[in-house]
């Protein structure tokens, strides 16, 4: 356990020791801040005009209109950010030949994978924490439901965890960070679009394939609903990706 935490801490520190981490953090805070201001302005206009309509009040609820719209755009940003964060996790070590050093240490490949994953997730948590002023602003202006906000943040954290785990798997297969980035982005894009593609299909296979995509599992969290099937999906998705990564890392030992 100590080894896992030590690797995680080293990984987390490495993000803040390089420009990549700070650029990613600043970019995320800026883009989400821009979206936040933009959607807040739009919602305000909408709410004010609906205020004069005695029958339009029910539809103007920031929990049902503003927050899903806002966090829906987070996913698009994360589709780009997570590959950028995860591309270097193994590819950099393999490229710099420091991976052999890590493997020669008395730490299991599972601990290495888990430690690096926790480090990357720690960075994502710090990034998300930097946006907490946004819910604070919403509390200042209106009355957001804490369950909806908690669910939305939880879903973004799980979504990021999925993206990072896919990125780690891709990173473990190449020494090129660019290839790792592009591969991860392509896989995530397919997974992101799958539910939309499956919606128009009639066959059960396509419907089942749509369930593999992440978007449909995020939606309910954003409404403040916690479904056990969505939790199981995220846990198993992340688990399978990390396990496959561990198998890949383990393969370096017997090559």
């Amino acid at each position: 356990m100590n080894a896992i935490l030590a690797i995680a801490r080293r990984e987390l520190d490495s993000y803040f020791a390089t420009p990549l981490g700070w650029v990613a953090l600043t970019g995320f805070v800026f883009i989400t801040g821009f979206f936040f201001t933009f959607f807040l302005f739009q919602f305000n206009q909408y709410a004010v005009s609906a205020g004069f309509d005695p029958y339009g009040g029910g539809a103007v609820d920031l929990n049902e209109v503003l927050l899903p719209m806002f966090f829906g755009n987070w996913m698009v940003v994360l589709l780009l950010m997570c590959p950028a964060i995860s591309m270097r996790i193994f590819a950099e070590d393999i490229h710099q030949r420091s991976f052999e050093l890590l493997l020669s240490s008395p730490v299991g490949s599972g601990a290495i994978v888990l430690g690096k994953f926790l480090g990357a997730m720690g960075f994502m948590a710090v990034t998300f924490a930097a946006t907490l002023y946004q819910p604070a602003v919403l509390y200042w202006l209106g009355a957001p439901d804490p369950g909806v906000i908690t669910g939305s943040y939880l879903s973004m954290l799980l979504f990021s965890a999925c993206c990072i785990s896919v990125g780690m798997l891709a990173s473990a297969f190449t020494r090129s960070q660019v290839i790792a980035f592009m591969t991860t982005f392509a896989i995530l894009l397919v997974l992101f679009l799958l539910p939309g593609l499956a919606e128009g299909a009639s066959s059960d296979w396509m419907q089942a394939l749509g369930e593999v995509g992440m978007g449909s599992h995020v939606e309910d969290f954003g409404k403040g609903l916690l479904h056990t099937r969505h939790v199981v999906y995220f846990v198993t998705f992340i688990g399978v990706c990390l396990f496959a990564t561990q198998q890949r890392v383990e393969s370096f030992r017997w090559r």
């Binding site: 709410a47 004010v48 103007v60 609820d61 929990n63 930097a130 202006l141 209106g142 009355a143």
Partner: peptide, 23 residues
């Protein structure tokens, strides 16, 4: 409900905070 109406001053504060101060 959960609706609100922002004043000009509030919108300015939110804009500055989101686009300038936090980044």
């Amino acid at each position: 409900g959960g609706r609100f109406a922002m004043t000009e001053a509030q919108f300015l504060i939110v804009s500055l905070l989101s686009i300038l101060i936090a980044p």
